[in-house]
Structures are given as C-alpha cells and as structure tokens.
Design a protein around this nucleic acid. Structure first.
Lengths: 339, 339
DNA sequence: ATCTGAAATGCAAGCGCTTACATAGAAGGA
DNA sequence: TCCTTCTATGTAAGCGCTTGCATTTCAGAT
C-alpha cells in the first residue's frame, strides 16, 4: 500500500518550520510569546502538514485537560437534555469541552464512570443530586477534582450545588392541587432510593397535605422508573383502585405523559374524570393532550450557572458556592377540580 | 497546607507490592501472564491505594484507547437517543467506551469535533449520514481511524454504512398515503442541504408520486430545522394555503408532533380534516394524539450492528462491510383518507 | 546433582507534549 | 565601547504508562 504517511507530530512541524518543538508548542498555546514572523512560519507548517496535537500527550505534560465530565442518570428521555445542553454551551464559552456519561440510575455504574472520567483527566465533574457514598467524594478530593452538584439545592451540604428545592417546588404544585379541592391524592414517583430529587418531591406533596390538615400517610404512592411505559402502567393500577384517586401527581413529565397515554387508552377523560400533573416542564408537557399543568424548572439557567461555578472552581477562582434557582408553576389543562 | 497526598501512580503500586511497574501493568492488562500469588499482592496494593490508571498515559504508551467517538447532529430531541444508547451498550459489551459530541447540524462544527475526537485517541468513529467533505475522510485515513456511517445506507459508497434507504422507507409511506386517496400532498422536511437522510426522504415522496402519475414537482415542500416549534410553524403556513393540502407528511416525528400541536391550537381535526404522518417511530409518536402513523426504524438494531462492525474494523477483523436494516410502516391514527 | 526450556519478572526505551531553565541576540544606558 | 536588561528561542527533563528484550526462576528430564 505504498508509504504509510502517519500522523504528524510536534516534532515534524518543528522540523518543517525550522524551529524547536518548544517554539511550536508556544505558538499553539501562547501565541504572543512568539514573534510574528516565526509564528507565521510555524502556522504554515501546521497547516500544510494537517497537524493536530495529540491530546493524551498534552494532558500528560500539562496536567490539565480543559475537559469537564458530567454523569447524568439517563440520556434516554429529555429530562436532562436541555440543562446539559446549556451546561455544554457555557462550558464551551469558557473554553472547556464536555464529556458525558450516563449511569442508568445505578450508583455502582456511576462510581465507575466517575473513576473513568477522572482517569481521563477531567478537570472537574458535574454530578446530579447529593445522595452518594462519602468514599466517592474522598476519591475526588484525593485526585483534586472539584465537583458541583446540580438538579438539587442543599446549602447545608459541604458540596456546592446549583439547583432548586425539589420539596418546595413540588409542594407549591401540591398546594394548588389541594386548593382545587382534591382530597384523594395519588402520586407516581420515580424510585426514591438513592435519589434525593425524587425523595424531595414526595416530601413536598406530603408536607402540603399536612399543612392542609390532610393525613399525609394516606397518600397513595407508586414508585417506578422514569419511563413512559412505567407511568402508563402505574396509572392503570391507580385507576383500578376503589375509591379512585381524583388526581394523580407525577414525579416528572415523562411519567405524566405515560399516565395520559394510558388514560386515553382506558377512555378516561383528563381532567374531567381525573386530574394529572407533571414536573420539569420539558417540551413533552406542551405536546401531550391535555397539555400538562406542571412545575417549570429553568434548566438552561441551571446548566449555565453550574458551568460557571465549576470552571471557576477548576481555575481556583472560587471555593464552591451554592446557588438556588427558582421554579414556577405552569398552569395548563390537565388539572381541574375533582369530578 | 499539610501533606498533599496526591493520586497514586503505577510506581507507587509497584513499590507497595514489591514488584516492578511492568508486573503491575501486566496484572491489570493481562492477568494470566502473572502468577497467582503476585497478582494477589498487586491487586491488594491497587485496592488499598485506591489506584486508578492514568488514561492519557495509557493511551500514549499503548497507542490504543478502547474509545469510540460518535458525532451526532443533535442531542436535543430523541431522534438519535435510542440508536445511540444501543450503540453504546454494544460497545460496552465489546469492551469499548463511547464519547459523544453533537454538531448542531453544522459541518464546520462536525469537522472540528472529528479532529477533537481523533486527537483524543478515538480508535474509531461513528458518523451520521454520508454527505461530508472528502478532506475529512482523507484526514481519518491518514490518522488510520476507521469509521462507519449510520442512519443511511449506501453500498456504493466506499465507506461502510449501517442503515436503511431513507428514500425507500419514506416512499413506502408515501405510497400508502396516495393509496388512501390523497392528491394534494405537502411535506415538512428537515433542511436537506448537506443532509442525505432528509434528501432521501423528500425523494422518496417524489418518487412515489411519480409512480402514481402525480406531478412530483407539485409537492408543497417546506424545509425547516428538526424542532417541534418549527414543525408547528410550518404546519401553520401550510394550513393557510388555498387549496389546503389534505395531508402533511413530516420528515420526522418531532416535526409531526409540532404539526399536531399546531393543529390542535388551530382547531383543525386530525385526521378528519387533514392527515399527518411522521418518520422514525420514537416514543413521541405514540404519545401525541392522534397517535402518529409513521415509519418504524429499528434504531437499536442499527446501533448494535454499527458498534459490532466498527469494533471489528478497529481490531482489524473486518475491512468494513455495509449492512442494510429494514424499516416498516406503523399504522396508527393520524392518517385517513382526504376529507 | 546438572542441564534445559518455559514461565515469570525486571529493565529501560520510548509515546508526544509542556515548561523550567539556559542561552543568545538586540537594544539602550553609562 | 562595554555592560545590563529584555525578549525570543532552544535544551532537555519529565508526565505515567506499555512492551520488547534480557534476566531470573523453577519444574522436570537426564
């Protein structure tokens, strides 16, 4: 197959330009430390050889990767998409690259991914939610990798977090549900085990019930994975109950979409016969019919803030401050009074 | 600041276990080349030090990263999610890690991402669609990075591809639309510029029309970005036409979901007053109402096949074979005869 | 007991880059 | 003119790992 031209290295560029590798490196990394004429010669060589620096070598020598890692529970649905996109955009603006992996809500997998990302030289990590083995935080500390937690706000934790109070946000929605007259309340929650966001949302509902003098332990609760089909299934079970709940509050919009789909299949009118609510206000919420009454989470804002905080930490400009973003109710058509 | 215990290296492990670094390395990479007793000692040291190999160093020394890169046009919606998930799962089974970036449908960005991924030592690349500068393929060749194209099937191209014929798939749907009696056909397509999938889908409709003796140039076509809002907007424009089309074929389910949303807003009954079709059969298709008549693409199968082919190429076990997967029509409720 | 060959382990040379330090000109002041 | 002070560039030491080759070890054969 003839001469196998293999990828050019710094050295090749240096030779071609008649300078040392140090100069080429400087041209690429701090152009102003090199005189104009030399720089042009070097850049030309780079261009004509089609040189791309070897990342591994660079990371190794510089001990800096300008890469941020993020581990999200799932890529399957849109829950994290918008926030992550904003996170990435901001990161890019700040000169960093994002590496994403998904843990499938499995702590064991997550731990593994964290190690992988660190081994790959991530300068910082974005984590979702606080619930996590202390050992993991120790590991990050040892490797001196800063991290911020998003989708959850807990100023009392020593970890910086950028998010909102899941309990309060859901509580607000629950109060308006109760205010609409509902008393037989059911909830389809995500798995609360090891998921502080899901836990917070359940607590939010319970607190609101307590506030209104309802028996919070009377809340009919089904926990299931955050999938459309699961939401549909849970809704089916709930509708088989006697007496039937008059409202089904869902842990997120995906679950709610499943509930709505099942309602349609069963010929149950929403909101005439039963009300349904969501959480997150992803695009889906507006597409389903009836459009979902839900809690709007400013994902973009959260993503951007998390990115800024994290890069500041990586660059030693911040010790890690938590910030709280505020959610708001979005009233559409899936919530009405009880039948 | 006291003693800063920093991350342990191979060397630290070697010392702790009283062996050479070579032995530790072998323990980790080919355990059977090391005697049981030694291995135990080493593993114990690894464990107690909390050692994680430095990825950059490993890649550099081994010239192998067991990493595959994928550049998809967007992460925003679910179009690529399912296929990519399957791709990743299979990759994981084969012992590889996936790195994903999204190009926002911008060739310039894509080219950059490809370079980045290669620089990061990706052993192979997954690309979406064929339309791409020849220069890019040359670059990949020079760096000896194999690639496979997915979401598109073109056996005549020298690049291996795993996908389906977008034209045929859409053609089949179009034939059934025409068969249902529609003559005034409109289409909301993704941007066809530099997107062979979108082009193929449009051609599919036109071919079907030609087959049935309709004037293919009479197809009312709107090109727009693959976003819900855009789909809604385009649908609005189409409905303002006189005479109104009796069916709106959408380039994918996302666009169709937008169309349906707008129809509801305008008080237009689907499919009584106008029919709507989608493409892809993502979860969304079943959630919207009426549920979409669409083309089912076996994304998972495609993802797995692409992963297998690509890893085979990386390992020198394949020269790169293309394979075609087959789509099928899914009849739901959004398509009926013309009013 | 000695020899042989295979198996286990050690040695050390890189992989491609960054960067502290050394060096060489150039420019300006005395 | 000579010396100081910059500035631009070169030199070379790693970064943490893998791996070809050399060396040691040890079981079995003689």
């Amino acid at each position: 197959m003839g001469k196998t031209r293999s990828a050019p290295t710094l050295n090749d560029v240096a030779k071609a330009a008649g300078v040392s590798t140090a100069t080429v490196s400087r041209c690429l990394n701090s152009p102003d430390r090199v005189i104009e004429a030399t720089r042009q010669r070097v850049m030309q060589a780079v261009e004509s050889l089609g040189y791309t620096p070897n990342f591994a070598a660079r990371v190794m020598a510089a001990k800096r990767s300008f890469t941020i890692g993020a581990i999200i529970p799932t890529m399957d649905n849109a829950i994290f998409a918008r926030g992550l996109q904003a996170f990435q955009d901001q990161l890019h603006e700040n000169g960093y690259t994002l590496l994403v992996s998904s843990s499938a809500y499995d702590p064991e997998v997550e731990r593994e991914q964290i190690r992988t990302l660190v081994a790959r030289g991530a300068d910082g990590l974005l984590l979702i939610g606080h619930a996590r083995d202390a050992e993991i935080y120790e590991y990050l500390e040892r490797h001196q990798v800063p991290s911020v937690v998003a989708w959850s706000y807990a100023p009392e934790a020593q970890r910086p977090s950028v998010g909102f109070s899941n309990a309060e946000a859901m509580g607000e929605l629950a109060r308006s549900v109760i205010f609409a007259g509902h008393r037989r309340i059911a909830m389809i929650s995500g798995i609360t085990q090891g998921n502080d966001r899901a836990q917070g949302r359940v607590e939010g509902v319970q607190q609101a019930m307590a506030e209104y003098g309802l028996d919070a332990s009377a809340l009919t609760l089904i926990e299931t994975a955050y999938e459309i089909d699961k939401g549909a299934e849970a809704f089916g079970q709930l509708m088989a109950l006697t007496p039937r709940p008059t409202v089904v509050m869902c842990g997120n919009d995906v679950l709610a979409a499943g509930a709505l789909r099942e309602a349609r299949r069963l010929g149950i009118q929403v909101p005439e016969q039963v009300s349904v609510t969501g959480f997150d206000d992803i695009e889906l919420a507006e597409i389903v019919s009836p459009a979902l009454t839900t809690v709007h989470v400013p994902h973009r804002e959260m993503g951007r803030k998390a990115a800024c905080e994290l890069t500041a930490m990586v660059e030693g400009k911040s010790e890690g401050r938590s910030s709280c973003i505020s959610t708001r109710l979005v009233t559409r058509h899936s919530l009405a009074g009880p039948p």
